[in-house]
Nucleic acid binder design. Structure first.
Lengths: 158, 158
DNA sequence: AGATACCCGAGTAAATTAGTCAAGCTAAAG
DNA sequence: CTTTAGCTTGACTAATTTACTCGGGTATCT
């Protein structure tokens, strides 16, 4: 699992599509305007998202992108894996500090951490992110102390 | 929380110190030989580890490094934070795709993920890693199906 | 036809990582 | 008290990765 800004952009863009896809496909130009991501970069990202079956494209005027699946069935890990392909950070898949008796002292650790991160992101659906965004986008003046699911209970650590 | 090979090297080196620190301090040259990490690179890493109070240095002949604290009280997150200083991956701490009503659609998500990773690594002590290493280093010919703590229950995901 | 919008691959610039080098300081051994 | 092993410091370079651009396509609708 690699965590780069590329993956972040991709997730943001997917949320945007989910938010603004009311019947008509969403164009990259719109997303670019709303999220301040360069059009060319979006093209690159959506090429991958499409090839991985996360979005469907419609060409020609009035075209754009639709989600290929229900937002509840798309996880953040799906999105990140789609754009950040080269996957294993487990090191030692042929790396050099992995020898005889001092065999990969930490291999275990990283593999396990990786799995952790992956599992976590797998558990977050696009839908849940969209719902969060909708709540936050509603008139913030009158924010009732809300009781939605405790998605982030934490100290923005490190 | 940044996860780079630098952090991995640092953790590996710390395990090495913990493993071979029997009274005498451990020299970087030894670590370099055992773990195949360049001496100069180790110098850089241990400078940071020392400044963060994770190791103590002993100068002069017979010198080297000792752990500054009991391995049970040093967590992997301590080590990684020591060498990979610039900490926040939360984006949006002044980044550009964070505007008006489409405010940081994903901020929440990354902050939460960050906290997750951090908490996990904080829960892994150097001691536990050392114990794992010791087990693995024992005669591998006669590996009895062992029942030690289930540290990595997983599919080496992604 | 012509405008709209996706498609795609090569190319580049910036940032990060990994690793080097050289000069200096410290303390133990002889 | 001089030698010498070995840590200390920090600036410097090379390689890799990331982020992003560009230019020329192709499909489709009006």
């Amino acid at each position: 699992m690699k965590l780069t800004t590329k993956g972040r952009f991709a997730v943001t863009a997917m949320i945007d599509v989910a938010l603004f896809n009311h019947g008509e496909p969403v164009t990259l130009a719109e997303i670019s305007g709303r999220q301040k991501i360069s059009l060319s970069y979006l093209e690159q990202l959506f090429g991958k998202l499409r090839r991985h079956g996360l979005v469907d494209s419609v060409r020609g005027p009035g075209g754009g992108y639709n989600l290929a699946k229900a937002p509840g069935t798309i996880s953040v890990s799906d999105i990140i894996l789609a754009v950040d392909e080269p996957i294993d950070t487990t090191s030692c898949g042929g790396e050099k500090n992995c020898y005889d008796d001092s065999i990969c002292l930490t291999h275990h650790l990283w593999a396990s951490l990786n799995a952790h991160i992956f599992t976590y992101l797998q558990g977050v659906s696009l839908q849940s992110l969209v719902e969060d965004a909708k709540v936050r986008r509603s008139p913030s003046i009158h924010v009732v102390k809300d009781h939605r699911k405790p998605s982030a209970p934490l100290p923005v650590a490190a």
